[in-house]
């Protein structure tokens, strides 16, 4: 079983959801992002999702876009992301990577998979790669023992839902609302419905980009990124990040509070 699977199982045994915290690599700097992710782990975040900054992030809302722009303007490279993953994985927490497809294709799919595995990354979340176009990634992730998280959406048909989860390994990412990251739910019942539809066709854990009690994992990005974005100094940002991470960690452990 993958390291993410082990972490999900452990959380499930504790009767709680897994907490995934997302941060763009190289934001605000390479070292700053390592410090931020380490702080999140220390404050109780179970799994770190490292997003590779990309010039055209169509699935991300304004907060993560701004953070990605700052990282890119600072000159972060894909090779830096590998170094960040290695440093964060060294803490012992599972590190999953979220990336748009072009940076992977440009790096070379197999080489990327090899380097990600040797950095200690568990696998990829691919917001703009659907299984239909993923032959090369399916082969590379098999060859290097990496997880594959494709997205499922409230608009996915039953047939696509079944096909998509069949290609996932590690966990499934359910997009809670029809919209970009950081967006608020327009319809509150879309996410639980999607999670139960996905649960009917897979035994894999299901993560939702929303604080929700019915999923196996909750994925938080924009709110954490905003702590760093809005802070006057890096130290203030880290302090705010620790506070929010601890609150979120308490939230998954004691959801009725």
């Amino acid at each position: 079983m993958s390291r993410i699977g082990v972490a999900f199982d452990k959380a499930r045994a504790d009767g709680r959801a897994l907490l995934v915290g997302c941060m763009p690599a190289g934001f605000p700097t390479v070292e700053g992002s390592i410090a931020a992710m380490t702080a999140m782990i220390e404050a109780g975040v179970d799994v770190i999702e490292v997003e590779i900054p990309y010039s055209d992030p169509v699935m991300d809302g304004p907060v993560i876009q701004r953070a990605s722009d700052i990282a890119l303007a600072g000159g972060v490279r894909t090779a830096d992301t590998m170094r960040i993953i290695e440093a964060v994985a060294a803490t012992g927490a599972p590190v999953v990577t979220m990336t748009y497809w072009n940076p992977v294709e440009r790096y070379g799919v197999d080489v990327f998979a090899r380097d990600l595995a040797s950095a200690g990354g568990t696998g990829l979340i691919t917001p703009d790669l659907i299984p239909d176009e993923a032959d090369e990634w399916l082969a590379a992730s098999d060859a290097h023992g990496l997880d594959r998280t494709f997205l499922v959406s409230p608009s996915s048909t039953d047939a696509r839902l079944a096909m998509t989860v069949q290609h996932c390994r590690g966990f499934v990412y359910a997009t809670a609302v029809m919209g970009v990251t950081g967006a608020r739910a327009r319809t509150s019942d879309a996410a639980p419905t999607l999670v139960s539809r996905a649960r009917a066709v897979t035994d894999l854990p299901i993560g939702v980009g929303l604080r929700a009690g019915y999923a196996d994992g909750v994925i938080v990005g924009s709110a954490l990124v905003r702590c760093v974005l809005d802070a006057p100094t890096e130290a203030d940002g880290l302090a705010a990040l620790r506070t929010l991470s601890a609150e979120l960690a308490e939230g998954v452990r004691n959801p009725t509070r």
Binding site: D128, I130, E133, S155, S156, T164
Partner: peptide, 12 residues
Amino acid sequence: GGRFVPEALVAA
């Protein structure tokens, strides 16, 4: 060619 899009757009 092909489709490199979020799953949310595939149905549309």
